[in-house]
Every structure is written in structure tokens, then in C-alpha cells.
Write a protein that binds this DNA or RNA. Structure first.
Length: 134
DNA sequence: GCCAACGTTGGC
DNA sequence: GCCAACGTTGGC
């Protein structure tokens, strides 16, 4: 069981859009590191859903419902997608500011590699962030 | 809108 | 294979 975080710009694809559709094909990733993270995702892994640019916070929890396969939006065999489904919206969002302010989260990949759209989350980090959503 | 960080491209 | 130029992401 692994934990991840994906970013989305809410005016392009928000948590509410995600819930409305009931699932999402996470396509369009064109970055090798993000791609490698998606390839490492296993069915049932938990994924934080983060709003970038607007909000700048974790809004909900998703789960990997289908493991990686060729990205149908391109012929290029280098790129893959995974499928995600929403689990729940958090009662309280966790802002980037709050995560940066927490010493226990100082090595969070989201903070260290701010431009990466799919990042791993350590189990300990996951538990800490989850505790901040209540 | 600005700009830092960082990934990609292409000339040599 | 190096590196300058350029493009993109994303926080502020």
C-alpha cells in the first residue's frame, strides 16, 4: 500500500468535477518523474487530491481504481494514465501553507519538488496530513 | 502579472 | 555530451 498526491488546477478539473463524474482517467501527464510515479501506483493506493493555483490545498482523498496503461490521448508509447475514483472530501482542507509550517512535513515531495504533478507521500506524512483534515 | 525552479530542445 | 536558450509550472 502506497500513498500519493496529484495536483489539478480547479478551473480545469476540480474535485467537484471529479465527484460528478465518479472517476477520472488521469491523462496528459508529460513528465517522466510523474509518469514513473503513476507506473508505481497500485490498485487500492490512496491519493490526495490537491488544487494548485487556486486554493493551493488538499481537498479530498481518492483511490487508484485502475493501474497504468497507455495514454489514449497520444500515440507516444512513453506516456501512461491511471484511473482514480473519489473516496471522500475532507471536512477541513489542508493548505500548502499549513504543510510548510509543519516541521514533520519538511521532506514532503510536494514541497521539495513543487512543479511535479504526481508525487509520493510517505506513510508517516500521510497520517499527519490526514490528522489535519478533521 | 511576476518570477524562481526546473524540464526540454537543439546547436555545436 | 555539454550547455545556452527557451518554455512551463505554480506559488505569491
Amino acid at each position: 500500500m502506497n500513498y500519493w498526491l496529484v495536483k489539478s488546477e480547479p478551473f480545469k478539473y476540480s474535485w467537484d468535477d471529479f465527484v460528478k463524474e465518479g472517476k477520472s482517467v488521469w491523462d496528459g501527464v508529460r513528465n517522466y518523474q510523474a509518469r514513473n510515479n503513476m507506473k508505481a501506483m497500485q490498485k487500492g493506493d490512496w491519493v490526495f487530491f490537491y488544487h494548485s493555483n487556486e486554493g493551493v490545498e488538499i481537498v479530498g482523498l481518492a483511490e487508484v481504481s485502475k493501474e497504468f496503461y497507455q495514454d489514449p490521448t497520444t500515440e507516444d508509447p512513453r506516456w501512461v494514465v491511471v484511473e482514480l475514483k473519489p473516496i471522500k472530501k475532507f471536512p477541513k482542507t489542508v493548505t500548502l501553507k499549513a504543510m510548510k509550517a509543519d516541521d514533520r512535513l519538511s521532506s514532503l515531495a510536494l514541497i521539495k519538488q513543487s512543479r511535479l504533478s504526481v508525487t509520493p507521500v510517505q506513510k508517516a506524512e500521510f497520517d499527519i496530513i490526514l490528522s489535519l483534515t478533521e
